[in-house]
Computed example of a mutant assay.
Amino acid sequence: MLLKLALVGASVLLSSLAARRLGHAVGGTIAGLPTIVGPIMGFVLLQETPARASAIALATLVCLPATIVHGVVFAWCATRLRWGAALLAANAAFLSLGAALLALRLPPPWACAAALLSPALGALALPRLGEAPASTAIPRAELACRVVAAMAMAWCIMRGAGVAPAGVSGLLLAVPITGNVLPCFTLPRHGAAAAVALLAGFARGLFGFAAFFVALLAALGAMPPAAAYGLAWLVALLAALSLRRLTQRARRAPLAGQPSTSSTAA
């Protein structure tokens, strides 16, 4: 349990340091990757049968659209409300939609497709605000508070996931720990634009999250659990790198279309 909590704390710290140095969007992207749930799922594979691990992975994929809706609701609430109200609204939306999706019992192909499409749709649904700062100041005391809050939340989730049925465990594993903790600290200190930029990055990172669980679900029936776990991490990293390259190309495209200063002067 202590090792799991240490992994959660390290993930939140890494995301926060990335936000401090490279901007809120980069920190959000790192937070969206399976840096927390991935190690937790590794412990699940060690303790449970492949069949139960597959059931938990499928339930997590089914609930992933609810994780995206959580971020969208928080982002829109952040433009008008304080962080506490935004947090309550976002988690109410997550739990309601997550429970509804589990009740639908989607076939695995549909669940995988919805999980892979929802991050892109969520990014489109976010509000469009002004540019957030490229780097930001986060005091050490706030870093410590972020880590403690995330570890406390993770402790509650892991305690529940260990005894709950597979569907409920999947819903608990899909609870966005960093998606709850980081925006609550970002909004009051840095404003709505920074919180939205963080959540936009979080949605991009969740594409790697979805790729991880899709690969794990597909591989568990075809290879040993350790090999399936390693393959899932490889797919998640490749998905994150591909998305980063696509984002960089999209940013360069408008600049390439602008005339140079010399040609304009001529």
Rank of each mutant, 00 (worst) to 15 (best):
R249H: 11
G27L: 03
A227V: 04
A57P: 04
A103K: 14
P107N: 04
G257Q: 15
L14V: 12
P65T: 00
A161W: 00
C156G: 12
T264L: 15
L238N: 07
P225A: 07
A240S: 11
R146C: 08
A132K: 01
A53G: 00
R252S: 14
P259Y: 11
L182C: 09
A236I: 03
L124I: 14
I68M: 11
M151T: 02
R80Y: 04
P254F: 08
A57E: 02
M41Q: 07
F43E: 14
G38S: 08
C112I: 05
A19G: 15
I138T: 00
A115H: 02
L199G: 05
S16C: 07
P133E: 01
A99Q: 10
L243A: 14
A219K: 06
V62S: 10
L81D: 00
A125K: 01
G170N: 05
G28I: 10
G205H: 04
C156I: 15
V168T: 13
S11T: 10
G230M: 05
G23Q: 01
A89P: 12
L172V: 03
G23Y: 04
W155I: 05
T67N: 13
A236C: 13
R251H: 11
V235S: 01
A218G: 02
A99S: 11
Y229F: 13
L64I: 01
A103P: 05
P108I: 00
L2H: 15
T35A: 15
A78W: 02
G42A: 03
G98S: 10
L129K: 01
G42E: 06
A103L: 13
F202C: 03
I40R: 12
L231K: 04
W233L: 11
S242I: 12
R245W: 14
W110V: 15
A90T: 09
A226W: 02
T79P: 02
S16Y: 01
P254R: 07
R251W: 07
L3G: 13
A215D: 00
T186W: 08
A55L: 09
L206E: 13
L104D: 09
G208Q: 10
L14R: 10
C63F: 12
P259I: 09
F209Q: 03
A164C: 12
A10Y: 10
L182D: 06
A200I: 01
L173E: 08
P139K: 04
F207S: 07
A125M: 10
A219N: 03
G122Y: 02
W110G: 07
A99K: 06
L81M: 07
P225C: 09
A10D: 12
A203L: 12
L106W: 05
G201L: 07
R128P: 12
A18G: 06
V163M: 13
L171R: 05
V26S: 10
S96F: 13
P34C: 06
F213H: 14
F209N: 08
G9S: 09
A53N: 06
A226Y: 00
L46W: 04
T261Q: 15
W233G: 01
A90D: 11
G28T: 11
L5R: 07
